[in-house]
Each structure stands twice: as structure tokens, then as C-alpha cells.
Design a protein around this nucleic acid. Structure first.
Length: 408
DNA sequence: CATCCACCGGAAGAGAAGGTAA
DNA sequence: TTACCTTCTCTTCCGGTGGATG
């Protein structure tokens, strides 16, 4: 490696030219194409429902369901973008705050982000929603007060991944927002669009919230493999130079993403990572093998990240599962406490450990099946589902644990 | 067929960390 | 300063429970 090669890498990056990729943005999650293939019906329905806002009446609340990567978010963003442009043309005061409940992480942050999105925090001091310290009620009140005071403000609030909000915090926030219109004494109003990954999420709602939130519903079906192929082909035309991605690669990509449930996001991720790998290899085409490598890399990276960022006790627990012979809860807990003692950490209670284990299960790092051994009690059978090397690699970075890894 | 093991998993809540309001 | 806010991690307590075994 000499200076020239480095220079050429930087030059290429700076000028943005690449043998393979033409427009990288088209492969990111945030990219919303102008037209979403196979989602015309859904777009129309949503547009229709919302269009009455242009006449100054309140649209029905809307609830959208569908598996990840079925285009829910993209469709909504697309429609809302057009709508707000139209609203502006007509001189309406229309605002369309968009929050993702999952990436906001907590219920309070959802409120904070809404306020931020609507520009409340730039306005009157008394109505600002700081990023912590207020009670939930106070924060909600401030947002609603703001809307009311603006006399004729139309708000269409989108909450993406709304199910994770309800899961963590119940439906208090939703209750307040759905009821808000009754409180307003001015012409302002608020409509809600909820986007959910899980079809069963409605069951967790209070009946009153449920009926008002789902005044209208729409289900997004997964894409078929053929549809994924078309979507990828279209995206490829924007993102890549011509003839760079073989059709075999596209087909494989679509097949892999379609295996579970036609997930377009995953398909596009796969394509992006494959392109990166191809670039590093200095290949001038994206082939099937790059897609396969990309698949491996994505899986490994996410597991690795999760593990690396988890707490010491979670890591010790992973180690204990790794070392255990048959993976029974009792045995794993024994090993776990043993390790703790060795590195002079107070072990957590068994109750907490079961909780952590079910979290790990949800993340897909381990599987746990509850089995009954009759007279010998009930237990969980734990198994690690990621390559052991990945686990060890991730744990190596924790200085407390380095000594333990070499033992066996 | 009742028993009883070895754990599961819900509920409540303590307490620390991060903050606002007045 | 005091009072009070949420969220996160853990603990304590405890009522279940599937099915091999006596």
C-alpha cells in the first residue's frame, strides 16, 4: 500500500464516482422514490382519506398495518409530502409531524420529537417541551395548547411503529391525542396516522382508543418475489451504472428477501451492502456471490453490534450459555454465577436472568424453548443461534472478560 | 391418576440517573 | 434549594404448570 492507492481511494470517494454505484442515496433507507411500484391502491386510499383536509375538515384517523418492508412508511411519507405541498399552495396552515416511536425509544421522547417537529420549541417558552423533566401530562398539554392557540392549525400526526409505543407505555398518549379535538375551542384539529408492524397490536388498546384510532384501516400485504424483482430492477436503474448488476444477482436478492415475508427494505439493504463489497473487491459488476457475502455480513454485523453494546452481565450470560452442556436454565445459571464469582461481580437474581434470556431470544441471539421434564421440573432449553466465533469476538472487547475467553 | 419438581413469568416497587420548575 | 418528573435495571414475592413417576 503506497500513497498513490490511498490517494486514489480518497479521490474516488470525494468525486463520488465509482465503477459500480451511480447514486448511493437511492439505496439508503431514507430514500423515498416518487412512485412506489405496486402500492398505487394504498396511496390512493390514503390520499383520498386525507384530502378533505384541504377543504378544512378533519380527516379520519388512520391505522396502517403490515410487515416490515412492505412500503407503509414510504407510502405515507410520499402522500404527506404531496399533501403539504398542496396545502401550502392553498395557503393552509398544515403541519405533518412524523415520529418513529421505536427510534424515539421512550414515550417521552416521542412527545419531545413531536414538539420539535412542529416547531413548538422555537416558539413561546411556556409551551416548550424540553427533552426531559416534564411530566407526560404536562408535555401533552403543552402540545395540545399550542395547536389550539394557533386558531386554525391542521395537524396530521404520523406515529411510525406505534406498536412499540403502546407496548412500553400503554395507550395514555394515544388516548389524549385522539380525544384532543373535543377539547379544542378553536378551528384547529389533529388527525392521527398510526403505522404498525403487528396486526395484533389493536388488542392492547383501550376500546375507546381503538375505535377512534382506527376510524379507517389499511393492510399492506407483503411483496411477492416477482414484485421484489421489479422493485429492485427499478432501484438498480437509479442507483447503478448500466449493466453493473446482473439479473441473476437481482433475482437472488429478491429470493432471499422474499423468503420470510417480502421485505423490500431488506432486499435493498442487501443490494447496498453487496455493492460495497464489490467496490472493495474492485470488481466492476455486482454478482451473486456479492449478494451472498452481503447476507453474511449483515447478519454478523447486527449480532456483533448487539452483543458489543450489551451490559457485562448479558455478556457473561452469553458466555454461560456457550459453555453449558445441555442449556438448562439451572445449569446456565450455575455457570453464570460461577463466572460472576470468579471476576468478583455480584450475580443477578434468577428472575432477572430469565428476563434477559427472553430479551436475547427476541433479538434472535439465542433460542429458548420451554420444555417440561415431568417430575424433574420445567425448564428452558437454551441454544446460541449465532456462530460462536462472533460471540467470542464481541466479548473480547470487554476488558473484564478477556481472561475468561481463553480458558476453554 | 394424583403428585410434585424446577422452574416460568406477572406485579409491584425500590432506587439511581437524568432532568425541569419555581 | 425542594419537589417532582420519567426511564431503566433489578429485586422481592408468588401464583402457576406440563407431564414423568410413584
Amino acid at each position: 500500500m503506497n500513497d498513490d492507492t490511498l490517494d486514489s481511494i480518497f479521490d474516488k470517494a470525494a468525486s463520488g464516482t465509482s465503477l459500480v454505484v451511480k447514486d448511493r442515496r437511492a439505496l439508503t433507507i431514507d430514500y423515498v422514490p416518487d412512485r412506489l411500484p405496486f402500492r398505487d391502491e394504498e396511496s390512493k386510499t390514503i390520499a383520498h382519506t386525507l384530502s378533505i383536509v384541504l377543504k378544512g375538515s378533519r380527516p379520519s384517523n388512520l391505522l396502517l398495518f403490515g410487515k416490515p418492508g412492505t412500503g407503509k412508511t414510504a407510502v405515507v411519507k410520499n402522500v404527506l409530502h404531496r399533501l403539504s405541498v398542496k396545502g401550502e399552495e392553498l395557503g393552509l396552515e398544515l403541519t405533518v409531524p412524523f415520529v418513529n416511536a421505536k427510534s424515539a425509544n421512550t414515550a417521552y421522547k416521542v412527545l419531545h420529537e413531536i414538539a420539535e417537529n412542529m416547531g413548538i420549541n422555537k416558539g413561546e417558552k411556556k409551551l416548550q417541551v424540553h427533552f426531559t423533566g416534564l411530566s407526560m401530562g404536562e408535555a401533552t398539554d403543552r402540545i395540545l395548547e399550542f395547536i389550539q392557540r394557533r386558531k386554525k392549525l391542521y395537524v396530521i400526526l404520523v406515529i411510525d411503529e406505534i406498536d412499540s409505543l403502546v407496548e412500553k407505555n400503554g395507550d395514555d398518549i394515544l388516548y389524549n391525542f385522539t380525544r384532543a379535538n373535543e377539547r379544542f375551542s378553536t378551528e384547529s384539529f389533529i388527525s392521527l396516522i398510526g403505522i404498525s408492524n403487528s396486526l395484533t397490536f389493536k388488542d392492547k388498546l383501550d376500546p375507546r382508543v381503538r375505535s377512534s384510532l382506527s376510524e379507517e384501516e389499511l393492510v399492506f400485504n407483503p411483496y411477492t418475489v416477482e414484485q421484489l424483482q421489479r422493485i429492485l430492477a427499478e432501484r438498480t436503474m437509479i442507483a447503478f451504472n448500466e449493466g453493473v448488476v446482473s439479473s441473476a444477482a437481482i433475482n437472488l436478492c429478491a429470493a432471499m428477501a422474499g423468503r420470510e415475508h417480502g421485505d423490500a427494505r431488506k432486499a435493498i439493504d442487501l443490494l447496498r451492502v453487496a455493492a460495497e463489497i464489490a467496490e472493495i473487491e474492485r470488481a466492476n459488476k455486482v454478482e451473486e456471490k456479492h449478494i451472498r457475502l452481503a447476507q453474511e455480513k449483515i447478519e454478523k454485523d447486527t449480532n456483533y453490534e448487539v452483543l458489543r453494546n450489551s451490559t457485562t452481565h448479558t455478556k457473561i450470560l452469553m458466555l454461560a450459555v456457550l459453555k453449558s452442556r445441555n442449556g438448562n436454565t439451572g445449569e446456565v445459571y450455575e455457570i453464570y454465577s460461577d463466572i460472576c464469582r470468579r471476576i468478583e461481580q455480584e450475580p443477578l437474581t434468577q428472575r432477572r436472568i430469565t428476563q434477559i434470556m427472553s430479551e436475547l431470544d427476541q433479538l434472535g441471539l439465542i433460542t429458548s424453548d420451554v420444555i417440561s421434564q415431568g417430575r424433574y421440573g420445567r425448564s428452558q432449553k437454551l441454544r446460541i443461534t449465532v456462530p460462536h466465533s462472533t460471540v467470542k469476538e464481541a466479548l473480547k472487547e470487554d476488558s473484564i472478560l478477556t481472561g475468561l475467553l481463553s480458558i476453554d
